[in-house]
Design a protein around this nucleic acid. Structure first.
Lengths: 332, 332
DNA sequence: CTGAAAGCGCTTACAG
DNA sequence: CTGAAAGCGCTTACAG
């Protein structure tokens, strides 16, 4: 059986308290004493039981990260940055996927306390603002992503401004018939569409509903299907703003399949700067932001919230930048 | 404060044991009693404390999944399938990244008991067979991936056979000068190179060391750099076997940049069938396997191992298949 | 700087 | 079918 503090204490001829002091380092211990305890721990191959510690301390050292779908490159990169950043803080990360069921987001919020976690990083997609406010007792939670809400801390990128810049850049390249791909019923879509429209308005380009292409599935496959169907009945736009890099991947593939050259025939832009976008064919112009800083910021807020549940709500907007690559070119 | 079993018991006027019976369902409870307890739980917003349960039961319901680097599409898809499959079994998944430090794999094996997890799914990369055998007391562990070892259960795909088929397919298309990209010092590379060589041998094609291209960074960026440097001093091969789809992404991009057409000038194949590979430009011929079944199988083994630590070691080879897409064409 | 005691919240034998 | 007691392994006041 596993050794416990008691076993170590007995072998080292000290009290359990002293073993605990050595392990946690809360109270100073004399060198001789420390050496004796450490020798005993080594001999017994002692490893502290974190369940017991969690019960006693009311802290598990574990947080949950809830993302819509881990298999998308975007979520994957986010998860990576969160796991690494949490690791440096001594926190473990339990992953939850919310896209699996619509019920899951709500469950997580209300029952997260049930799990042995100290806090929750939640990227809501479906959860409407109302439901969140309804959720009575939140566990310490930091929201990430695009659901505007006022019940908790959150970290996000100014989606409206970002897509406005992206679209304005296309305007500056001389494009007029600029489409946006991936319109659907979600907060992210709403904000990005808003940015797109704002850019057109600023350029005095009349917005054309036909160019706001419905695309409810934000994956390469979904985008491929949507754009292919669209082009059967519509002219090729001069430029296409894709709501995400994943959408852009499907669009690039569809355009290639149909024999349209990017950027010669049509410019394409994405959003997120997923790692693979730099190696798309052609490399993708997109919106970039520092995902590492994003994760750190969210964890800062979460740790602060765990430490003081009554502190004022904080909202952080992370800076973004337009990253110009070969998928865009001037109109000729 | 959070309500406890005691509080619920008091309110429902029963003993804590009865509350526990209702919650866990171990012992049958009369309907009237159950209703009373459930009403009390609802009123107090009772949520069981899993840390306490974990301490008492010696089970946390949490497993750890240790992957080299979550941000790669391959790891991301694996993580997704594991999280979903674990979820249906009522298990939570804590993610660990091992690539961050070389020490991490070893730590996980020896100290996983420390964490509040019941078992470990480990995809080792660097860990040599020896070290694993050295690791005295493993927590319940299932290995996934390509490190052959005899100390624990594992699930894998027959890499040698898969790459042999992949290469033979290129041979059948009429290619002779077939390169392999991504040779490095790792078990995965060793096995895939072995399959490549076996296919050449079977076709009586003399193997050329110049065509075994060193590529220690298995990412689009690393592959891009390696193949670009290579082509400065060598002829374009007739076909390129990429050790992974990620490598293939970088290779496709480099070939496009250099003006080589795929598959007209050169055929390219990958390995893993990552989701985005179907939408690569051009869509990638690759090795596919059922990642969902892979995750389920590994979890089956892990649950069995947790239940009985002394059961005989089990190894499962998951079937794979060659998936032919547009990145390969017959030599003309 | 160290010891003895109590308790975190749960569930499992043990009785009834 | 239900109750009272004990204990999982840890750490925190409380003394000394």
């Amino acid at each position: 059986m596993r050794a416990t503090v008691k076993d170590v204490a007995r072998l080292a001829q000290v009290s359990p308290k002293t073993v605990s002091n050595v392990v946690t380092g809360t109270t100073p211990v004399s060198d001789a004493m420390r050496a004796r305890v450490e020798a005993a721990m080594l001999e017994l191959d002692y490893v502290p039981n974190l369940s017991a510690r969690a019960l006693r301390n009311g802290r598990s050292g574990l947080i949950a990260l809830a993302l819509p779908d881990l298999s998308t490159p975007y979520s994957a990169e986010m998860a990576h940055h969160f796991v690494v950043a949490a690791g440096t803080r001594g926190l473990g990360v339990q992953i939850e996927e919310t896209a699996v069921s619509g019920e899951r987001e709500r469950q997580l919020i209300s029952r997260a306390r049930a799990h042995l976690i100290d806090g929750l990083i939640l990227n809501p997609v479906l959860l409407p603002n109302v439901t969140v406010q309804d959720g009575v007792r939140l566990p310490p939670t930091v929201f990430i992503g695009e659901v505007e809400q006022s019940v908790g801390d959150y970290v996000w990128v100014d989606n409206v401004a970002a897509v406005r810049e992206l679209t304005s850049y296309l305007v500056d390249l001389g494009h007029r018939r600029i489409a946006i791909m991936g319109v659907m019923k979600s907060e992210t879509s709403r904000l990005r569409l808003k940015g797109y429209r704002a850019a057109l308005r600023a350029a005095r380009i009349r917005r054309d509903p036909v160019l706001e292409i419905f695309g409810p599935k934000w994956s390469p496959a979904g985008a491929y299907a949507a754009i292919t169907a669209y082009l059967e009945h519509h002219d090729l736009p001069e430029a296409i703003v894709c709501m995400t890099d994943s959408i852009a991947a499907g669009v690039l593939n569809a355009l290639w399949t149909l024999g349209h050259r990017v950027p010669d025939d049509v410019s394409v832009v994405g959003y997120d700067n997923v790692a693979d976008s730099a190696f798309a064919v052609p490399p993708l112009t997109t919106i970039d932001f520092d995902k590492d800083a994003y994760a750190s910021t969210a964890l800062d807020l979460l740790e602060a919230r765990i430490a003081d549940r009554d502190r004022p709500i904080e909202r952080v907007t992370m800076p973004h930048r337009l990253l110009i690559r070969a998928s865009t070119a001037a109109r000729r």
